[in-house]
Computed example of a mutant assay.
Amino acid sequence: MRTLIVDDERLARNELKRLLEPFHKIEIVGEASNAEEALVLIDDLQPELLFLDIQMPGKNGFELLTSIEGKAPEVIFTTAYDEYAIKAFEFNALDYLLKPIDGERLKDAIARVEENQSAPEETAVANERSEKILGEQDQVFVKDGEKCWFVKLGKIRLFESMGNYVRLHFDDQKPLVLKSLNSLEDRLDPNTYFRANRKHIINLQWIEKIEPWFSGGLLVTLQGGDRIEISRRQAIRFKELMSL
Rank of each mutant, 00 (worst) to 15 (best):
D82G: 08
D82E: 13
Y84C: 09
A85I: 10
A85C: 11
I86H: 01
K87Q: 14
A88T: 07
E90F: 07
A93M: 08
A93C: 05
D95I: 06
D95K: 06
D95V: 05
Y96S: 03
L98Q: 01
K99H: 04
K99E: 00
K99R: 12
E104A: 11
E104D: 13
K107Q: 14
D108S: 11
A109H: 01
A111L: 13
Q117M: 13
Q117S: 10
E121N: 09
A124E: 12
N127Q: 15
E128K: 15
E128C: 14
S130Q: 12
E131G: 12
E131M: 15
K132D: 06
I133Q: 07
I133W: 06
G135K: 05
Q137M: 14
V140R: 01
V142W: 03
V142D: 01
G145L: 10
G145I: 07
E146Y: 14
E146P: 10
K147E: 09
W149S: 07
K152L: 09
G154H: 04
G154A: 06
I156D: 00
R157A: 09
R157C: 11
F159Y: 07
F159P: 01
G163R: 01
Y165N: 02
V166R: 00
V166T: 00
V166D: 00
L168N: 00
D171G: 11
D172C: 08
D172F: 13
Q173D: 07
Q173Y: 08
K174M: 14
V177L: 07
V177I: 15
L178W: 00
K179V: 11
K179T: 08
S180T: 12
S180L: 06
S183P: 07
S183W: 11
L184W: 12
E185R: 02
D186W: 07
R187F: 05
L188P: 01
D189T: 04
P190Q: 05
P190D: 03
N191Y: 13
N191H: 14
T192G: 08
T192D: 04
T192E: 06
Y193A: 02
R195K: 09
R195A: 04
A196L: 04
A196W: 02
N197K: 10
R198G: 08
R198E: 09
K199S: 12
H200Q: 12
H200V: 11
I201E: 02
I201A: 01
I202P: 00
N203P: 03
L204K: 05
